[in-house]
Design a protein around this nucleic acid. Structure first.
Lengths: 205, 205
DNA sequence: GTCTATACCTCGATAGAC
DNA sequence: GTCTATCGAGGTATAGAC
């Protein structure tokens, strides 16, 4: 029963504490960035002592890495689920919708990634040109196929995907600015209507 | 001849050093965030000693604030220039184009703001709900007028403006990811074509 | 497994010679 | 104005009792 490299073996109690640490770390790292976060803050949020944190994880870095790695999959699921055999426009609009839901429901995760990418992706750089690029390449081919077959309007599939990232993640990553500009209005209601209309028009022949 | 609060009086040599410091600080702050940047790094990049930095600015914070404040105006210029009396679609497409140019030509400035907003805008929060909101409100009225007059398609003006921010700034803020996904291709050429087509379609009646 | 105490380092800022 | 030297706060990580 081998241990994972960054995490210790798991009993019930250890599992519970590990989870509490990761939950707290997500909170703090997403709010302050890697360097801005302190183990004190994370420990307090997790309800543990600082040395106890380091009993469960080898280092601050290890907590951060574990978070990024375990969230990467979740993050790419919506794109992975884009079905080549489904209805093109419906598939793309569903991708848009799921990404927007993720911004609304998982803003901390979005900001965790944003912090990492913004600073040059020092810890997940490899994953970007590896797994991510492969996945995007594959799905771009699917979209190009749809364009060529005349099922959606002709469009650059890479910039289409990037635009969906940009537009949806913006509502989580720049939330304070969006809320400041919108006043008291809920950002996501307007966003959903606006974005669906936008892509509806873009993809229509 | 009163001094500004954060900056000392200026002779030629002081001006040159101040500028070198701000230039270096922009480089480092945009790359590492406020907390992640160190005065040592900034001093080295500026070709000065660390105490000498603090001869020109009161503190690390003061350098950062000076940067944000002096860049805020530049940043909002394109929106400020949106002309109520110009051709609606042309005005909006020009706004889009100028914002994309800013991402291409001033990526460090974009990332400086992105870092600040992402972490909850602790240092420019007031500016967001003040100056920024006022400006956006005013321009949103202009756009709504265009919609109502049937000069462009009906569209939520706030989310329209937000979408332009999101789409253009993404190419600067998430540059490593964009480049990883696109391989060797220049992001901005494809982006310009894609985005102009997108808004052309959106705004057309 | 969890704590207190602490070692050790990095960083922002200051002192003081030149 | 600019430097070397250094202080003191705050940070990660470890030692060691329980």
């Amino acid at each position: 029963m081998p241990d994972t490299p960054t995490r210790k073996r798991e009993t019930r109690i250890q599992r519970r504490n590990s989870d509490a640490i990761l939950e707290a770390a997500l909170d703090i790292f997403s709010k302050r960035g890697f360097r801005g976060a302190t183990l004190d803050e994370i420990a307090e949020a997790a309800g543990l002592s600082k040395p106890n944190l380091l009993y469960y994880f080898d280092s601050k870095e290890a907590i951060h890495t574990e978070l990024l790695d375990s969230l990467m999959d979740t993050w790419l699921d919506p794109l992975r689920d884009l079905d080549p055999d489904g209805d093109p426009k419906a598939q793309l609009l569903q991708y848009l919708r799921r990404k927007l839901e993720m911004s609304r429901d998982l803003p901390r995760e979005s900001r965790l990634f944003a912090n990492e990418i913004l600073q040059g992706a020092p810890r997940i750089g490899a994953g970007l040109s590896g797994d991510l690029k492969s996945l995007v390449d594959a799905k771009a081919q699917v979209i190009r196929g749809w364009s060529d077959a005349g099922k959606i309007a002709p469009v650059d599939p890479y910039h289409l995907i990037i635009s969906i990232w940009a537009l949806t993640q913006h509502y989580a990553d720049f939330e304070v600015q969006v809320r400041a500009v919108l006043g008291g209005v809920d950002p996501y209601e307007g966003a959903e209507a606006f974005l669906e209309g936008l892509y509806e028009k873009l993809l229509s022949l």
